[in-house]
Design a protein around this nucleic acid. Structure first.
Lengths: 341, 341
DNA sequence: TTTCTGGTTGGTATCGTTAACAGTTCGTCG
DNA sequence: CGACGAACTGTTAACGATACCAACCAGAAA
C-alpha cells in the first residue's frame, strides 16, 4: 500500500461499504457492534486516519476546527503567553491553531490573514498592526469570526479584549509626579499602534492634569526593539535638561532600557516581567495578565463560532501598578503631600 | 450572494468556464490577456478567494504548504524564540504553521500529531516530550517529513538539531570545580526528557572526572516550573551539608531559583536570558542560540519536503559558557591552579 | 402468509478545485 | 483555397469524504 490508506481501503479490508466505515470512524450510532468491530480492526490493521481535508470539503455546514492567531511576533514574551493560553483553550475544544506573525508590517498582516481564510479557518484572533483593518470586512461578511486581543482595530466592528492602557499610564505618570518628577521620559513603539496611541495619550493627559508642559524632547515613538529603546534612553538622558524618570511602553523596551539606565533615574515599565523584583532597585511595573486576556478572547471567539450573534463586545481587563522601588525614587520636587507608595 | 463566492460564481460573472478562472487565479500561462482581465475584474468584484481546502484535495501530488510545530509550551521563552524563527522561514516559503503544545504529556503529544497529520501537513518540527516516539513511524512511512529540534527522539530515525548538552554541562561543572566547589546542586526537569538526561549525565561525568562523589541529596529531577525550582533550591540548601554552587537546567528553573538563592552561592544557568547581566551578581550562563537551532531545523525540513532523501542528519550547534560573575564565586577550595575566568 | 416495522447497510450525488484531454478559432502556408 | 498548427477555451472525471435516500433483513403484527 503506497501512501496513506483511504476509507475505501478500510471498507475493502472489512468487507463493508465506505459509508459504514464513515459511520464507525465518526462514532455515529446505527452500526451493528459486530460490524463496527470488524471496521475498527481494519482501521488498526491499515493504520487508517481520516482525511480532514476531504471531510471539510464535503461538510460545508461544518467547521474546520481551526482558528488563526495573528500576532506581531510570537517571540515577544507577552504574545508568547497569549499564544500559549489560546492554544490551550483551542486544544481543549478540539481545535487547532494556525499561527502567523505580522512583524508590524500591514502587508504581511494581509497576507497572513488571506492565507488563514483560504484555509477556511472558523475564526481569527488578532493583535492588529498599525493601519486600517477594513480589509477584514469581506472575510467577516463571509462568516469568519474575528476577535481582537491586546489591541483594538479602529474601523472594524468586532469583539475586543484589552486593558485600559490610557488609564494605566495616566496612573503611572501621576505616580511619578507624586514622587516629585516633572520631567518624565516616554518610550513607545509607533503611535499608530492602538496600544501605544492610548498609552501616549495617557502620558500626555497625566502631565496636563498636573500642569506640566509636555516636552517633545523626552518622548520617543517608533521604538521596535530593545536596542532602539537603549539608544533612545541614552539620547534623552544626554539632552541639556534630562528627565528624572522614564516610562517604558512595554516589556521589550523595558528590557532594552534597563541596562543603560543610570541609577537614580526613576523607572516604570508597562508589563511585568521575570526578575523585575530581583533587580536593584526592583522595578515598578504596570502589570496586566496576558493569560486572562487570551482566555477571554478565546472564549468570546468560540462563542461566536458556535452561534453567538449578539452585538460586538469590548472587554476591558484590569491592570495593576506594582510599586517595587524604581518608580518611587524621589524626583527634584520631593514627595508630594497626600501620595503614598 | 450568501457565503463565500466560488469559482463558478466568478466564471458566471466573467462569462467564462471555471477552468479559465482556475488558470487565471493560479497565474498559469495560456490565457488571453483580455480574458484574464475580465476574470480578474470578476474576482475583485465578488471578492473571490481560492479555497485551498478543495485545491489541496484535488492536487494529490501537491503539498498543503502547511507544517506542524509541536513544542512543550510556547510560553517558554526558548520555545517562543524557536517558534518565531520557524514561522518566519515558513512564511518566506509561502507556508503556514500549525502550532500545538504537548505540555510534557505524551498522550497530548500523540493527539496533536494526529491532528496535524489528519490535516495533511507536509512536515513536522517537534521537541519530543518524554517517552517513546515510535508512534511517529506510521506518519513518517506515509510521507510526512519530521525534524526534531532541541531534543532528540531516541528510537526514531529523523533529522535532529540539538546542542551538545552533555559537553556544555560538563564544562560548566568543571568551571565550578575549578573555582573551588565540590558540593554542586543540580536542578533539572524529568530525566526522561532527552536534554535533561544529557545534562544530568554531563553533571555526573564532570564530578566523576574531578574525583567528587555525587551526592544524590543535591540533585532534583522532575522540576517543571519556576516554583518547583524555588522549592528545590530551598530544600537542598537546608540540608546538613548544603551545596556551595547550583546549576539550573534551563531558563524557567533559573528564573524560579534566583529569587530564593542566597548571596554567596555560585550559580550557573543553562540558557541565557534577559537581564542576566543586570542582576547582582550578574549570572553566568550556558548560552545557546534558539534562532539558529530553529533556522537549521526549518531548512532541513523544507529540504526534505522538496525531495531530499539523504540519510537523516544530526546537527550539533555550539553553546557558549558566558562567565558573568555568579559562576565565578569561589568555593571552599579556593581557585584551583590553572583555572581562569 | 403478508405487511409493517425498525435497525442496518449500501448507492449515488456532491463539496470546490484541478488534471487530462477535447474542442474551437484563428492566421498562415503550401 | 483548404489544411495545419498555435493559441486559447471548455468538458469530464476525479480527489476523499459525507448527506441523503433507498434497499435490505429479521421479527412482530395483522
Amino acid at each position: 500500500m503506497a501512501g496513506r490508506p483511504r476509507m475505501k481501503d478500510v471498507a475493502a479490508e472489512a468487507g463493508v461499504s465506505v459509508m459504514t466505515v464513515s459511520r464507525v470512524v465518526n462514532g455515529e450510532a446505527g452500526v451493528a457492534p459486530r460490524t463496527a468491530a470488524r471496521v475498527e480492526a481494519a482501521v488498526r490493521k491499515l493504520g487508517y486516519q481520516r482525511d480532514d481535508v476531504a471531510r471539510q470539503l464535503r461538510r460545508t455546514d461544518q467547521l474546520s476546527q481551526t482558528i488563526g492567531l495573528m500576532v506581531d511576533n510570537v517571540a515577544d514574551p507577552f504574545m508568547a503567553a497569549v499564544a500559549s493560553a489560546i492554544e490551550d483553550i483551542a486544544h481543549r475544544r478540539g481545535n487547532m491553531v494556525l499561527i502567523g506573525s505580522s512583524r508590524a508590517d500591514p502587508r504581511r498582516e494581509r497576507e497572513v490573514v488571506a492565507a488563514f481564510t483560504a484555509r477556511r479557518v472558523d475564526g481569527l484572533i488578532l493583535t492588529p498592526a498599525a493601519g486600517s483593518h477594513r480589509f477584514l470586512r469581506p472575510a467577516q461578511a463571509r462568516g469568519t469570526k474575528i476577535v481582537c486581543v491586546d489591541r483594538a482595530a479602529p474601523g472594524l466592528d468586532v469583539d475586543t479584549v484589552v486593558v485600559d492602557n490610557f488609564g494605566a499610564v495616566e496612573q503611572a505618570v501621576r505616580h511619578l509626579v507624586a514622587h516629585g518628577h516633572r520631567r518624565i521620559g516616554y518610550l513607545g513603539d509607533r503611535r499608530e499602534i492602538w496600544t501605544f496611541g492610548e498609552r501616549h495619550r495617557g502620558y500626555l493627559a497625566a502631565l496636563g492634569a498636573a500642569g506640566i508642559d509636555a516636552d517633545p524632547a523626552l518622548v520617543r515613538h517608533g521604538l521596535g526593539s530593545g536596542a532602539d529603546a537603549a539608544r533612545a534612553v541614552t539620547a534623552i538622558l544626554s539632552t541639556p535638561e534630562p528627565p528624572t524618570a522614564v516610562l517604558a511602553g512595554n516589556e521589550v523596551l523595558a528590557l532594552g532600557a534597563l541596562p543603560v539606565l543610570p541609577a537614580g533615574v526613576a523607572f516604570i515599565a508597562f508589563d511585568d516581567f521575570a526578575l523585575a523584583a530581583q533587580l536593584t532597585p526592583p522595578v515598578t511595573v504596570i502589570a496586566q495578565d496576558p493569560v486572562a486576556l487570551a482566555t477571554n478572547a478565546a472564549h468570546l471567539l468560540f462563542a461566536r463560532i458556535h452561534g453567538d450573534t449578539s452585538p460586538p463586545r469590548r472587554v476591558v481587563m484590569p491592570t495593576e501598578l506594582i510599586p517595587r522601588g524604581s518608580g518611587e525614587i524621589p524626583g527634584p520636587g520631593g514627595l508630594l503631600p497626600g501620595s503614598r507608595d
